[in-house]
Design a protein around this nucleic acid. Sequence first.
DNA 1: AATTACTTTATAATTATTCTAAAGTATGTG
DNA 2: CACATACTTTAGAATAATTATAAAGTAATT
Lengths: 140, 140
Amino acid sequence: MQKMNSKNKIFIDKLRSSGLRPTNQRVEISKFLFNRKKTFHFTVEQLKNSMNLKRSKKISTATFYNTVHALKSAGYLKEFSLENNTSYYDTNVTSHHHFFDNGKVIDIKSDKITFQKLPEAPKGKKIKNVEVVIRLENNN
Amino acid sequence: MQKMNSKNKIFIDKLRSSGLRPTNQRVEISKFLFNRKKTFHFTVEQLKNSMNLKRSKKISTATFYNTVHALKSAGYLKEFSLENNTSYYDTNVTSHHHFFDNGKVIDIKSDKITFQKLPEAPKGKKIKNVEVVIRLENNN
DNA sequence: AATTACTTTATAATTATTCTAAAGTATGTG
DNA sequence: CACATACTTTAGAATAATTATAAAGTAATT
Ligand SMILES: [Mn+2]
Ligand SMILES: [Mn+2]
Ligand SMILES: [Zn+2]
Ligand SMILES: [Zn+2]
């Protein structure tokens, strides 16, 4: 049974509105993802490793994937792709930009980049969003 | 043995300068990739399927991967990532932008997008490149 | 308490990719 | 040209990320 301390209400609500019952595993995942002040960028594997590291009874891989997918479908997480092979997820679900520095992802707020010129969408199409990736390297 | 008709010289040269001997399989792949007027965006699986479709003796998967990787390392192909799970390659190796419309990739020339405001790189870093993806949807 | 519904998990399956090792083909040398 | 050496192709095995399956666990409903 779930002790419904109102401290966790916000994390439980995200699960509920994603169509998931707030089980213990899911509440822990939701807290781990959303109980932070800064945007969190992660892969499912990273999430699993960092959460399971400090646990005696591990949460299964399938539960991580299922929970992340449900939260994504409900709009609480955004999936993106930088390097191939792995999906990244972002707790900042607004359309925004990124620095990408050797595997590390940093948010750039939308208002930090503005355009002087943008192409029009091909006929029959319209623009859904415009996202910028700025790749970094060390100077010297 | 390779009949060195000068018609294929340019495709053979790309292989040579990628450190690959111009075998028949490789020359066919090089021609398929570079003997076109428009930019070509592809996954290795797509490349393999479309080339092998019309062949009696199929070129092996490993040869496709090896050849694409060598051409990429030599700078004749650029790898990029849009949706997860698969690497895309681009015969336009300059830094440029893309429309992305439901799996379909279209080049946007660099000069079609200009910036009014761009953030500075974090200290110790400098900007390697800035690439934009414009996601499209149907208007209706 | 019994029934039903949803969850978790271990494990199998799948997909994209890379590795391996054997068989094939080309190149260099005398 | 013979032979040795070097590089290539390929089928199939291995790997990594992800998804599917199905049995056992837990919660909700009656
Ligand atoms: Mn991949
Ligand atoms: Mn993937
Ligand atoms: Zn972000
Ligand atoms: Zn392109």
